[in-house]
Design a binder for these strands. Structure first.
Lengths: 161, 161
DNA sequence: AATAAATACGTGTATATACATTTAATTTGG
DNA sequence: CCAAATTAAATGTATATACACGTATTTATT
């Protein structure tokens, strides 16, 4: 008989070896930073077998979202999670691996249009399968609690003017 | 009359130009990554006037926590939020700025013990004042909601075995 | 139309992460 | 007690972030 077990997440206190926090809000800030690092590490592990980094995967996903339409660098950048991502340089690496193609736009020669190649799509689909599999299996958070989490995360970004 | 106003946080959908998410959990994952980036960007702005990066500030805080005790590189690393931080290299930069001192441990010559200098403490205290000021003013999240947020973040890291 | 301003992208530099390898010191096991 | 294993830190390399700056092109202004 197969028995499901759940590993208790390592408490933040253990993870960063600190027990005293100025407040729960302060702890939450550190917790968000730690959880983001943890999430990135988890996906990086999966993506490694496909020779992709987290950021390269993200760019491929963005391009696939518009496929077969092309996207210029600025459009890709506006959809990146980390807003200071240097998209031209990430595209450099994807181009070397022949996962995307880069061309000067004929409508506006300042723009570079990027297209995901067939190889890019194939690799993205294979890796997305694995990523989604993990996503659906790994996270034990019920949908309604995820809704709450999303609300709280929005609230923490509310700033006084 | 001074009137307090609160800027509504930019919705995740706007921030990353996406409207469709596979689920609320999937959205929450992207939301955590985005919020972590946003938080880091906010502190980086404050720390810039002190010539510190987020990571250098973090190392100084860790050293101050044990001061006047010394800490070895491994102990500092175990308290870092991002577990793959390359502490020797961050210490290189702090040493150049004379904010820390580095010596070989006499008890175990493999270890390097690091001490925060008086200049380091002064800079840390000045920057912490500004950082805490922002923290207490900026975040509009009530303590009890921060407790919930911390619980949910712990839950998302629960994994099936 | 000619010039100025703005825009898109690429590139340079400093810092950081991720991870493998090297070196020196210490611990362990025969 | 010594060889092997382990440990701590430093270092090398690839990738990414943060940000300034340069260049080409387009748009706006006079």
């Amino acid at each position: 008989m197969y028995i499901h077990t759940f590993a208790l997440a390592m408490k933040l206190e253990q993870a960063i070896q600190s027990t005293k926090f100025k407040s729960e809000v302060h702890k939450a800030v550190l917790h968000i930073l730690y959880t983001a690092w943890w999430l990135k590490t988890q996906s990086a592990k999966e993506l490694k077998e496909f020779g992709l980094t987290h950021e390269q995967y993200n760019v491929l996903r963005i391009l696939k979202g518009k496929y077969p339409e092309q996207m210029c660098v600025r459009d890709v950048a506006s959809r990146m999670i980390e807003k200071n991502s240097n998209v031209p340089r990430i595209v450099d690496r994807l181009e070397l691996k022949k996962l995307v193609e880069r061309n000067t736009s004929q409508l506006d020669k300042r723009e570079t249009v990027i297209t995901i190649t067939k190889e890019g799509i194939a690799l993205l689909e294979a890796s997305t399968l694995v990523m989604d599999e993990r996503m659906s299996k790994q996270f034990q958070l019920p949908e309604e609690e995820a809704v709450t989490l999303n609300l709280l995360l929005e609230k923490i970004r509310e700033i006084e003017e």
